[in-house]
């Protein structure tokens, strides 16, 4: 049975690649090798905006660029860079370092960046980091905060349920226990700072959620960010991660200029324009690029 299935799949693959070679499917991996730069993004608004900004900056240098948006979590994105489906992705220094070096304990911005540069696998590289930062942050409702929860340390042991993306537990469950002695009654899988996460906090399914500091939802819902005095969450400066051979020197220079122009404030504003004002990612990115001299 398995053999028959293999035959079906293989012959299908043959036929499809035969007809597929003539077709042009925007952003398909096959074109990546022939000089086109594919910019990828993870599945949340800010990352999509950054990808669109990178794409615009690269286009301005004369490169052929396409965007593959909303791919998933870091693991998938890095894999896609390595197998040449993608050329460049917007990344975050701290989490990227933790991904490349599971034993990392560095959290301060410069140290993280230095360590990241040395830990990035061969074939990939990170460019200059931006001052703009988008950190993970645990937030609670105003009511919970008024009840005396101001810092991660106040969460105590087994008192609250947490809502976060699927990979949170794997990355942080042990660290939050070691640093603060905090455990949760339940770590509910929601999404990466999206509607499921926010609604879970609003309707009381969980009492703490993991969001990102540039998220428009924090202000819109009056959520309170918990302090992180022992810096569990590392610095998360925005940084382009790329496959070295995918982008030329001019392109790298353009991306460095973008990073220099980005600040946490203007990034948060771009996110708000998309998530709250429903402007398009493309327009918001284009507006931003007008303010950068490439």
């Amino acid at each position: 049975m398995k053999r028959t299935l293999a035959v079906i799949v293989a012959s299908a693959a043959l036929v499809v690649s035969a007809c597929g070679s003539k077709e042009d499917l925007g952003g398909s991996g096959q074109q990546a090798a022939s000089g086109e730069v594919v910019v990828g993004s993870a599945d949340f608004t800010e990352n999509k905006i950054l990808a669109e900004i990178y794409a615009g900056a690269l286009k301005a240098t004369g490169a052929t660029v396409s965007v593959r948006s909303g791919i998933g979590a870091r693991e998938l994105v890095v894999k896609a860079l390595q197998d040449k489906s993608l050329g460049v992705v917007p990344e975050y220094t701290g989490n990227l370092l933790n991904y490349f070096d599971k034993t990392n304990t560095t959290t301060e911005a410069e140290e993280v960046y230095t360590a990241l540069k040395s830990k990035t696998p061969a074939g990939l590289e990170v460019l200059e980091k931006s001052d703009a930062e988008d950190k993970d942050v645990l937030v609670v409702t105003k009511a919970t905060a008024d009840g005396g929860v101001k810092s991660i340390a106040d969460l105590g042991s087994g008192k609250y349920a947490l809502g976060a993306a699927g990979e949170w537990a794997q990355r942080w469950e042990t660290k939050v226990k070691d640093l603060y002695g905090v455990t949760f009654t339940e770590i509910k899988t929601t999404d990466a700072g999206g509607p499921i996460t926010v609604d879970a906090l609003k309707n009381g399914t969980v009492q703490v959620i993991n969001l990102y500091t540039t998220s428009a939802d924090i202000k819109a819902n009056g959520f309170v960010e918990l302090e992180d005095p022992k810096t569990m969450y590392p610095a998360q400066n925005i940084v382009p991660l790329l496959r070295s051979d995918a982008v030329d020197a001019k392109g790298k220079e353009a991306l460095d200029k973008v990073s220099a122009a980005l600040t946490t404030e203007n990034l948060a504003d771009l996110v708000k324009r998309v998530d709250v004002d429903k402007e398009t990612v493309a327009n918001v990115a284009a507006d931003f690029l007008k303010t950068v001299t490439l």
């Binding site: 998933g72 979590a73 693991e75 998938l76 699927g166 990979e167 794997q170 899988t189």
Partner: peptide, 14 residues
């Protein structure tokens, strides 16, 4: 929380 959860979570982190 259907059986799609391990599917989606597994997919996110490969």
């Amino acid at each position: 929380e259907t059986l799609g959860r391990p599917l989606l979570d597994g997919l996110r982190v490969l």
